[in-house]
């Protein structure tokens, strides 16, 4: 099983914690209190390996750090985006300036981390406030605007709704697939190098893969 560190960044009250809770617990709270510091959650997903011939699903685990958006906690963020495999930069599609805050985060990530392998995903939340025709469209950030920016910066881009759950699973699924892809390539190249350096070494697998089966004693 692979483990990936994932961090959520973004302005306060854009819905970071709501997205995480939708993904991890599949629940939504209308009156969520604002996060203090950074919260930790984990969730596993299954990925079907399309390239290899095996039909078995691969399980990957996300260690999610949900940071607080308030300015006060900004100094904590570097600790959590450092060594992260993926960063979800969330903005609120009904708030124009939350997008500019998100862009600031993207810049900070690119400057401070500078890791090619870090997957940054731009995520517009609160889609449910926009597509209801009878209640008036509250959208302030056009999809195209964000999409163009995401393509420029080479980011993944999605619009989701934590309230309805629309798109949330897909985001994590696609991030997982991408991370898995990267990991596999890395391992393949490593293997190749190892194989090249020590052809006769015997690999003993010490770690038995966790079953992630609640009925099992090793859960």
């Amino acid at each position: 099983m692979f483990q990936f560190k994932l961090v959520l960044l973004g302005d306060s009250s854009v819905g970071k914690s709501s997205i995480v809770h939708r993904f991890v617990k599949d629940s939504f709270d209308d009156f969520r209190e604002s996060t203090i510091g950074a919260a930790f959650l984990s969730q596993t997903i299954k990925i079907r390996d399309t390239s290899s011939d095996s039909t078995e699903d691969t399980v990957i685990k996300f260690e999610i750090w949900d940071t607080a958006g308030q300015e006060r906690y900004k100094s904590l963020a570097p600790m959590y985006y450092r060594n992260a495999n993926a960063a979800l930069v969330v903005y609120d599609i009904t708030q124009q300036d939350s997008l500019s805050k998100a862009q600031n985060w993207v810049n900070e990530l690119k400057n401070k981390v500078g890791d090619e392998d870090l997957i940054i995903c731009l995520l517009g939340n609160k889609l449910d406030l926009c597509d209801s025709s009878d209640n008036g469209d509250k959208r302030a950030v056009m999809t195209d605007e964000a999409k163009v920016y995401a393509e420029e910066q080479d980011l993944l881009f999605y619009e989701v709704s934590a309230k309805t759950g629309q798109g949330v699973k897909d985001v994590f699924q696609s991030i997982g697939e991408k991370l898995y892809q990267i990991k596999k390539e890395e391992m393949l190249s490593k293997k190749g190098r190892q194989a090249a350096s020590a052809k006769d070494s015997v690999n003993v697998k010490l770690q038995r893969p966790s079953t992630n089966d609640p009925t099992s004693c090793c859960y």
Binding site: I36, G37, A38, A39, F40, R72, Y73, S75, L76
Partner: peptide, 14 residues
């Protein structure tokens, strides 16, 4: 000091 306070808070949370 502010940073220290936030860090201590987070330490407690963790």
């Amino acid at each position: 000091r502010e940073e220290l306070m936030v860090l201590k808070e987070q330490k407690f949370l963790v």
